[in-house]
Structure formats: structure tokens, C-alpha cells
Design a protein around this nucleic acid. Structure first.
Lengths: 335, 335
DNA sequence: GTGAAAGCGCTAACAT
DNA sequence: ATGTTAGCGCTTTCAC
């Protein structure tokens, strides 16, 4: 069961081996007749070119690495699906490199020549990987989170404006005791959202005291814990803005667990509008971003960078808007 | 910015190129001293071995293909996450090959030597791919769905027993007009579940008339459509068993849309217990399978097959159980 | 323990 | 339009 090589096809078609290579790729400089004979021979033998041979010689793999958080966080499937579809459509296959934000990411697979480029979804302040990839000439795009440096291609949400929209919305509803549950402090999705949220509250004559701020890694569990902490202070907040939908979902879980009515006793607002949040049974009021667009933009940035490595770095910032669903209300009178 | 090769490292360390290869892989037959010198030189130069060179020579890529449905169907993240984690832990990276059940899957990337093995999550009756991979000696495992043939490694749920558990549960609750929303007819997850469900109902003195059976591809939309069709018949069913949780979620969406109370007017039961279904805001009563275990088992089957290709085919069937949550109730009196 | 030489299967450059 | 030759970077065999 030895592998069928282009030599086998060549022998069968009565041509030389490079002719097989040319014919199957439809390069000009092969007659229609030979092309047909080669194709026939290849089909008969079930010939499939070996990818490693091709990559070794061309340095092109048509694979793109996607460094991603755990898929059990439904944000990632929501972001990845459009990227995968866009890549697939352009003839690229995604290689998933798991990164849990805790263990250091092993960058070797990103630089071993097996990928034409890399999309990072889990960057944060101080990430060494983007710089290292740049130094080695591996095309790289940051999506959703960035490092703070301004020298990479990024596709991100308007984190500051989104957070301000949340602040204005809650204040307009009449809330005064407003809390915040953040994510990992090193991520731009958490720090930018928190800073802009606090700033806008201040501008509107409210404040965000530290006893009403919780945070931790982005997970259901930390959403629960944050909610528990915030709600056990006295007086408790009447509204909570969460740095993303996962945290908001965790907060809702904990609210349900503690029999705190949402939005009766406390309003909860998320950020991202991942697909799950729109289910009627979830119905999370949130700051929306077009995640599909953000993902596709990242793919597009990467593919153009692969094609023209010299281009200056580009930033795509995606607009946000408030999507009111079922988890907000004015504060209960007298609370 | 030419690439650093093992020759560069060799020159710097004052040894021959193969010695570099041996030293970095800690092969016996290299002195500790040389090993140290080589390692130092490699680090200084930032040497990373080129994967295509290595693969060409060893035919081992440490990549595994996962043919998967769209990640926007939350079942797939639930199944993939444990597989990805298990693979990563064993030093393998997953390459995702999207398959939407409609367009024919292009099998070339599965057979171009770039993958040590393949896990198929979207097989169905008549799938040509597993046979083709077998013929070419590419290790392959089916997970969740199978083809019907008995000659491949598979990791699946106890579809028949699970469906019987659902039937017994609904009958015990007192339901008599019971409906079924199936998935793609060609999939074992739909056909086996439907057959066992109908059989068990019959055994218990109920029947499953075709006007109470709907079906289509596995999607939220088809769950909604199925629910709409079933509930517009007169008299309407008081309980519906869905071939999986996505369909059940779709049914719940449509129920909400039509202001049909769940479980007040109609009970809804799913199958799979994907992580999402356990959220309190969803609270779907369902037939559970340990998806994480099913995924890990698939990885384990694949890795042992890669190690010992000669082994006879194995089947791992994962137990199911009923997980009562919030979407079931006895039929309303007089309905 | 280490070096020299060969070979994995492909594409690219150069002849003709 | 096609054949010949070389080379991509690694691992492996065989000498010594």
C-alpha cells in the first residue's frame, strides 16, 4: 500500500514527472492532450499530491492558524464560525491552537512553516507572540482583543463607545447604584470597556466605586462569583454591566440560584451579543457587535497581508449598538 | 530574513547537520556536551524546525483532521472542545474541515498526507469518505454519527436506549398524543432515535402517527418549522420528543413565538444534553450523553489506531440517561 | 558519538 | 510543449 506519487502517474501517462505537476495545476505550457492523459492517469491511480512535498517546495500551505480560547465559551464558536467559513471559501483550512489564557502558549507550531498566517483571538497586554511572529515574517492578525501596540493588523469592536452606550442606557433608565463585572484585566476587552464605562458614568454624575467592581477570567463561573460579590454589598446595585456576555450569563445563573429577580431587582447588561444571547429563553440585553463581520474582517486582513506583506498595519473597528432584550428595567421604586 | 535551518545551527555549534537533528530530539547517541552546545546555538539563532521537511521525511504530522458541522450549532463546540483538549494534551493539533451536510465534502485534504488521522462527526448512511480513507490507509474514527457499516472505529451514544427512555418518560407522565421532530433522515442519530422511540411507544400501547412526525436538517430553524407543523394539527400533541437539543431549542423558540406555554401546554424533550441546555435560562429536559467522554473516546480510538493500524474495529457506545429540567410536565387535564 | 550520503515528493529553473 | 536537473529541510542509514 505504498503511496502513489507523481512518478507513478508520469510513468502511466508516458510523460516526465514535472509534466504531471504542471498538467495537474493547469499551467500554461502543457498541451490539452497531455493534460487529459495525465488527468486520466491520475484519476485511475487515485493520485493525491502530498502536501508536505508541495509545502517544502513552495512554502505555501493554505493553512491558517487560529489561536482560540476554549470552545465551551460560546463566544469563541460565534467568532470562529464566520472565520472558518470565510477561510474555507478562499481555499484555506484552519488549524486550531488552544490557548486558555493561563498556561503560556507554545508558539512553535505557529512558526514551523506549516501556516501561511495566524489569527490571534486571545492576545492581551504584554503578549509576546505577535511581536515574535512579526520578527519571523509570519503574517498575523489580532481579532477581538489587542495588545495595546499599534503596529499590527486588528479587527476589534468599538470597546469604548460600546461601554459608553451601556452607561448612558443604564443612567437613562434611572439607575444610580451601578456595578461592573470585568474580565481578565490584561485584556483590552476588559480594560477599555471598564475605563470607558467608568468615565461615562462620571461624566453623567454617577460613580463606579471599587466595591461595585468585580472581575476575573472570562467564564460563567467568574460571572457568578462577581455577581455574588456585588450583590452581597449593602446597598446592592440595581444594575450591573458585564464586560461580556459570558460574564452576564454567569451573573444570570447566580441570580437565578439566589432567587434575585432579573430584571425586577437587578438589571444585567452584557457585551458582544454572541448568538446564544439572542435565544428567547436567554434574552440578554447587551451591547451588540457584528461578530460575523468582525471575524470575516480578520480573515480578510490576514489574506491581504499574506498577499502583500509590505502593507502598513490596519485597524478595523466595528461599530456597537445597544440591543434591548429582557434583562433590563428601571430600578424598582424605593430600592 | 531567510529562514534559519539546521545547517545554520550546525555551523554555529561546530557539528554536522544530522547531529543537530539528533541532539534536538534527544536521541541516544549524542553526548551531553554536544547536545548542550547544539541547544544553545539553536536558541541563539531562534531555530524552529520546518514542519514540512520533517513530515516529508517521517510521514508524521501530529495533526488530526476533524470534519465538523457548523460551530453555530452549539452541539459541535460541545463535542469538539473535549476532543481538541485531548488532542492538544497528546501533542496533536486539530485541523477543522467544515462540512455542511449539503455540499459534498472534498476529501483531498484528508488524504494529502498532512494528517495522521481523521475524526468524522458528520457521517451518514452512504458516506463515501470513511471507505476511501480506509482504502488509503488513513486512520479514521466516526463520532456521534455512523454510516451503518460495522467496520470502522466509532464512538456514539446509545441512540436506541436513549430514545426508549424518552418514550417511557413521556408515557409515564401520562401523555398520549406524542410527536417527534427528527433530523436528517440519513443520519443514525435521527433514524435510530426515531425507530426506537416509535417502537417503544407502540410497545407501551401508544402510536406515532405520521402527522405527528416532522423533520429536516439539524437546525434551530427546522426545529421551529417542525414545531409549527406539529402544533397546527388538531388535536395538537401534548408532548414532543426531538431528535436532538438543537431541534428542541428551535421548538422552544417557536413555542415562545406562538405563545404556547412550555411545559404548560406542551412538553419538549431533547437529546444530547449539550452544555447550553443546562443553563438555567434554557433548562431543557433532555436525554443526556456524556459528550465530553464521547469526544475523548473518539480521540483515544484514533490515537490507538494510529499506533496500531492492524487492530480490529472497535465500537464505544456511551450510556444515556434522562435529565429532567424545566420543559416537561404531565398533560394538562382535559387536553 | 559523529559525519557523509541518500532520500522523502514536490515545484522551479533551465534546456531543448 | 516537454524533459533534465536541482533543491526545498528534514530524518535515516551507513561508515568510521
Amino acid at each position: 500500500m505504498a503511496r502513489v506519487t507523481s512518478f507513478d502517474v508520469a510513468r502511466r501517462a508516458g510523460v516526465s514527472q514535472p509534466t504531471v505537476s504542471r498538467a495537474l495545476r493547469d499551467l500554461r505550457g502543457t498541451s490539452a492532450a497531455t493534460r487529459a492523459r495525465v488527468r486520466a492517469a491520475a484519476r485511475e491511480l487515485g493520485y493525491v499530491p502530498l502536501q508536505s512535498g508541495r509545502v517544502l517546495s513552495t512554502r505555501l500551505s493554505r493553512r491558517v492558524g487560529i489561536v482560540t480560547g476554549e470552545l465551551s465559551n460560546p463566544f469563541y464558536p460565534g467568532l470562529l464560525e464566520p472565520m472558518i467559513a470565510a477561510l474555507h471559501q478562499r481555499g484555506y483550512l484552519p488549524v486550531l491552537i488552544p490557548d486558555d489564557d493561563l498556561d503560556a502558549l507554545n508558539p512553535e507550531p505557529l512558526m514551523d512553516g506549516s501556516l501561511d498566517g495566524v489569527i490571534l483571538t486571545t492576545a492581551h497586554r504584554g503578549s509576546a507572540v505577535p511581536g515574535e511572529l512579526a520578527r519571523r515574517g509570519v503574517p498575523c492578525v489580532l481579532v477581538n482583543r489587542e495588545t495595546g501596540e499599534r503596529n499590527a493588523d486588528v479587527s476589534v469592536a468599538a470597546n469604548d463607545e460600546g461601554a459608553r452606550q451601556a452607561a448612558r442606557f443604564l443612567v437613562r433608565l434611572g439607575h444610580t447604584r451601578i456595578g461592573f463585572i470585568g474580565g481578565l484585566a490584561e485584556t483590552t476587552t476588559s480594560s477599555l470597556r471598564e475605563a470607558a464605562f467608568a468615565g461615562e458614568l462620571r461624566r453623567l454624575g454617577r460613580d463606579l466605586p471599587s466595591r461595585l467592581v468585580a472581575g476575573g477570567p472570562y467564564s460563567l463561573g467568574h460571572g457568578r462569583a462577581g455577581f455574588a460579590r456585588l450583590m452581597s454589598g449593602r446597598p446592592a446595585p440595581t444594575a450591573i454591566f458585564c464586560a461580556n456576555d459570558i460574564l452576564a450569563l454567569g451573573a444570570m445563573e447566580e441570580a437565578c440560584h439566589r432567587r434575585v429577580a432579573v430584571p425586577g431587582e437587578v438589571s444585567i447588561i452584557g457585551f458582544d451579543d454572541m448568538p446564544l444571547s439572542a435565544l428567547t429563553s436567554v434574552g440578554l440585553t447587551t451591547i451588540s457587535v457584528d461578530l460575523a463581520e468582525m471575524g470575516r474582517a480578520a480573515v480578510h486582513l490576514l489574506l491581504t497581508r499574506i498577499a502583500r506583506p509590505g502593507l502598513p498595519a490596519r485597524r478595523e473597528v466595528h461599530a456597537t449598538w445597544l440591543t434591548p432584550r429582557g434583562t433590563h428595567a428601571p430600578p424598582r421604586p424605593g430600592s
